[in-house]
């Protein structure tokens, strides 16, 4: 834990340094202003436009919970509360290097679970390939490997940050197509980022803050890279370390136990999500 803390403190220091440097961007300071309240985006989104959802799978229990809550959302018996996967024309799944289990779970979710849920709910099979959209799985190096010495943690965190930057700003996605080989699709910056910890997700979120602060590719002015963090269902009375660090940074912060809402005014309880 101490190592992760050190790594994150380093990153926050760098972030603050860049903030000072980027003082001319004062108009965008609201992105990280700690006193800001949670707010619902008011601009009306167009469901017909291409949309890009980015999901971070944090490995182990984090991945299990993320998949569980997405499954619950796409299979909600109430259609008004159900998550429509086809609203997101491209999905980027971010996994840590070496975490093949998470990569496999993302693949299964995209290729089996979503279709299965659709069939069960609507009673018909969706064969329209274009409606299904596209997805890709991106790998970033771990912020810290197990047993990694403490003094190298800031370096590996920076390496992770660089990889996160590349994932967040990628403009093309290559898709392997059974017969025709590889097709390249253009994608815009992620509209929405969904994560539930731990370190890798934290670094990715801090990277979005920097990109939005400098309005990289219109990240802020075009309302891209909105972030949603979901605290683990296993956290009943206290936030996790990632949660504590991100609670005033993300756009929306969901908790799964009502008593956690008292921790600070930005935390929202919308029921159990897993």
């Amino acid at each position: 834990m101490a190592v992760m803390r050190l790594a994150l403190v380093t990153l926050v220091t760098i972030a603050i340094g860049l903030l000072t440097f980027g003082g001319y961007r004062l108009s965008r300071m609201h992105i990280i202003h700690p006193g800001r309240r949670k707010h619902v985006r008011r601009k009306r989104g167009d469901k017909q436009k291409p949309t890009h959802l980015l999901i971070v799978l944090g490995s182990g229990g984090h991945t299990a919970e993320m998949i569980a809550m997405l499954f619950r959302a796409i299979t909600d018996p109430d259609p008004t509360k159900r998550l429509d996967w086809t609203n997101y024309t491209h999905r980027t799944w971010v996994v840590s290097s070496g975490d093949n289990i998470s990569a496999q779970r993302a693949k299964t979710f995209e290729e089996k679970t979503v279709r299965f849920a659709e069939e069960v709910i609507t009673g018909k099979t969706q064969n329209d390939k274009t409606r299904r959209g596209t997805y890709d799985i991106c790998t970033v190096p771990r912020a810290r490997e197990i047993h990694q010495p403490i003094h190298t943690a800031p370096i590996s965190s920076l390496r992770c940050m660089k990889a996160c930057y590349e994932v967040l700003t990628k403009r093309t996605v290559e898709e392997k197509d059974g017969e025709t080989g590889t097709t390249t699709t253009k994608v815009d910056l992620p509209d929405l980022i969904l994560c539930n910890g731990p370190a890798t997700a934290t670094i990715l979120i801090f990277t979005t803050i920097l990109l939005r602060l400098f309005d990289f590719g219109g990240a802020d002015s075009r309302g891209k890279m909105r972030t949603v963090y979901v605290e683990s269902w296993a956290r009943v009375k206290k936030l996790s370390l990632s949660g504590t660090l991100l609670s005033r940074v993300v756009d929306r912060f969901l908790v799964q136990w009502p008593q956690l809402e008292k921790v600070n005014e930005r935390l929202e309880y919308r029921g159990v999500l897993v």
């Binding site: 008011r42 009306r44 959302a73 609203n87 949603v228 919308r270 999500l273």
Partner: peptide, 14 residues
Amino acid sequence: VGGLAGVMDEEMGF
């Protein structure tokens, strides 16, 4: 309003 889907829709402006 819905749980996760509700929050995602709000953020997307759906």
